[in-house]
């Protein structure tokens, strides 16, 4: 499998480290429902059989975090963007 790094181009997946689903966002620890929100954030996943937006770190390349959109059934890749622009 090769991933289209927005900076380096099409590169072997060997060069990347995987984090997982890009959807979970760190909740506000001061919020009233923080315990429940952190349980969701840390442990619960949609785990779709289909399109997944996921975080990869290009450690052996540009060393940037990349969000790759991939089909988990076929590994067909729809696209990739830098994570920095998308996440607060």
């Amino acid at each position: 499998m090769r991933l289209p790094c927005p900076y380096c181009g099409l590169r072997d997946s060997h060069e990347f480290s995987y984090l997982g689903d890009a959807a979970p966002q760190r909740p506000d620890p001061a919020a009233a429902d923080a315990a429940e929100a952190f349980h969701d954030y840390v442990y619960l996943r949609d785990n779709p059989a289909g399109t997944l937006r996921e975080l990869w770190y290009h450690g052996a390349g540009c060393r940037r975090w990349v969000i790759v959109e991939r089909d988990t059934r076929t590994h067909a890749i729809a696209g990739a963007t830098f994570a920095a622009g998308e996440r607060p």
Partner: peptide, 18 residues
């Protein structure tokens, strides 16, 4: 490995990745 596929039909999210 199909657990999340079935629990999704019940609107449940699981602490599982396939």
């Amino acid at each position: 490995g199909s657990t999340s596929r079935l629990t999704r039909l019940l609107d449940l999210r699981m602490p599982i990745e396939s």
